[in-house]
Design a binder for these strands. Structure first.
Lengths: 210, 210
DNA sequence: TTATCTATGTGACATTATTCACATTATTAT
DNA sequence: ATAATAATGTGAATAATGTCACATAGATAA
């Protein structure tokens, strides 16, 4: 499926296109042009066509893209046509909220394990039925339940040690909510989510104009 | 303070440098070279020097950067040497968790209003003392309390309407957690936070190699 | 069948961002 | 003083990314 060097930016945009297309699908839109889709996603129409061109030809000239087809194509491109098992590490405010929040599930992700270092929390049952395990059991359970991606929602101070354990357990993908740059071997792919960085960008723009 | 066209990427990296420097400060590190800082932030040393060069000369040749000075310089560059008032709109899982989560406060941001459409929630007091107002009062209260940035943590279906109200209330900066691309006039700067997009990127990497 | 229309796919171009390499300057030791 | 050292600041080279413009091909209607 992957032919050339694909820009990371392209991958991120594909996710955005997919979400917008899924919206359109619910509104029963059958076909859409790159121009209309671009407007809704806030990008250039040629950008969309270029992004898709990395992976093949998915449109019909003179017509546009069949919405449902394109959703499926993008899913395949991104590797989303299969289940992905997630483990949440850290069930403080953010961790618990993320599990309760429906968005992960809506996009086909599955929470199959949850860990915390607080023995008070261990053994408790989350709304989705998952029981919280102690973080000491991480390696064993991650392997047992075939977890693919670890989500770190611990305080910054424990993030690196959790990351190390995840790597030891054979995890190759980490979503990191902790406000710290974690160090992992090349085999492991890390994506960081830090809202305060985005807020800083807003503060900058408000201070010094767009 | 702003001289030329500053890349957005530079602004985001400055936030990251600042966070790392703040860590170093706690470890009582006085001085750091671009090389060591770069390693900790996962970037190229020249990148750091270039990013800073947009705004002036902050280092000492042959020595490096004084950590505490550089933190202050970056704060000034980003416009963080003053308070910013935030309003949270939507107090579901994510909204409440974000307010309880200490990270915004730690970086000097202040929650000065909270809104929800659910009349059950209106009037309740949050852990930080804020009382939840009905979203109908948004415009009035935002003006009254001099809110600078709105954080949208509502379901996707209400995000656009909330954004419209924020713009009406004179807000020029929005942090959007809702998984939808909101449309606003140019005067308003929007930053999106969508973890599932990051997860998609991880899925892609796991599927098709780094 | 043929002409017309429309929106894709793509090569060429323009822009933006990153890295390199080295001249520059503060510091330290002799 | 002077030399040696170290790490910044920066112009030039490179790489990556985004945009334009148009030839191309499917669809529709006469």
């Amino acid at each position: 499926m992957k032919f050339a060097k694909i820009p990371m930016a392209t991958i991120n945009r594909l996710s955005i296109y997919m979400r917008t297309l899924q919206e359109l699908l619910e509104e029963e839109v059958d076909v859409i042009s790159s121009e209309r889709l671009a407007k809704q996603c806030g990008v250039n129409p040629a950008q969309i066509r270029k992004d898709l061109a990395y992976f093949g030809e998915f449109g019909v000239r003179g017509v546009g893209y069949r919405v449902s087809d394109l959703v499926n194509q993008i899913k395949e491109i991104l590797g989303l046509n299969r289940p992905w098992n997630l483990a949440m590490i850290g069930l403080g405010n953010l961790g618990s909220a993320s599990i309760r929040h429906g968005n992960f599930i809506k996009h086909g992700y599955i929470f199959s394990a949850a860990f915390d270092a607080d023995t008070q929390k261990v053994g408790k049952r989350l709304p989705n039925g998952l029981i919280i395990n102690h973080v000491d059991e991480l390696e064993e359970i991650v392997k047992e339940r075939d977890v693919h991606v670890g989500i770190i929602a611990t305080p910054a101070s424990s993030a690196q040690s959790v990351a190390n354990q995840l790597v030891l357990a054979g995890i190759n993908g980490i979503l990191n909510f902790a406000p710290i740059q974690i160090q992992v071997p090349d085999c492991c792919h890390v994506e960081n989510v830090d809202f305060t960085i985005k807020l800083d960008a807003i503060a900058y723009h408000l201070s010094f104009g767009t």
